[in-house]
Simulated scan of single mutants.
Amino acid sequence: MENWYIPITIIPGIGLLILSTSNLMVALSNEMRMLIADTTTTQILMEKKLRQLKLLNSAMVFLYSSVGFLLVSGLVSGIMQSVGGHNNSFIYITIGGICWALIGLALLVIYSFKAVKLRQDQFNNKC
């Protein structure tokens, strides 16, 4: 059974997540740069923005790792198929990659909720 392509087909979707997350990181970094230049910015607001940046960075690490797992899985499966082996270890590597991607997605969901809450606090001048 040819299963080497299954983990490889998931990678473009994760790549789009990585692209959108890196765009979020750039936008957040630019916002932080503007807040640093503003003398009325509070320390609390900057700390919250730094926590947001850390959360996005963690999500990126999980997404990048997921791509690595899926690439290795496809490679192992393809090699096993070409040498006639029947080792199903690629399935566990694929599951690991999917789990890492799900953790990255969970971090992005947490980021989204916290970003909205922070915007509400900024609007209400609580930070």
Rank of each mutant, 00 (worst) to 15 (best):
N57D: 06
S58D: 13
M60R: 10
M60W: 05
F62E: 01
L63K: 10
L63Q: 13
Y64V: 15
S66G: 05
S66L: 07
V67F: 08
F69G: 04
F69M: 11
L70C: 10
S73E: 01
G74R: 03
L75R: 01
V76K: 03
V76A: 07
S77M: 07
S77E: 08
S77T: 06
G78Q: 04
I79E: 02
Q81P: 01
S82I: 15
S82R: 15
S82M: 14
V83W: 00
G84R: 00
G84T: 00
G85L: 02
H86T: 05
N88L: 13
S89K: 10
S89F: 10
F90M: 04
I91E: 06
Y92E: 07
I93E: 05
I93D: 02
T94A: 11
I95A: 14
I95H: 08
G97N: 04
G97H: 05
I98N: 00
W100P: 03
A101L: 03
A101P: 00
L102E: 06
L102F: 04
I103H: 02
G104E: 03
G104R: 02
G104D: 07
L105F: 08
A106R: 06
A106I: 08
A106E: 02
L107G: 10
L107C: 09
L108V: 02
L108G: 03
L108A: 04
I110R: 12
Y111I: 07
S112G: 14
S112C: 12
S112H: 10
F113L: 15
K114M: 13
A115T: 15
A115C: 11
A115W: 10
V116I: 15
V116R: 15
V116H: 13
K117C: 09
K117E: 15
K117I: 13
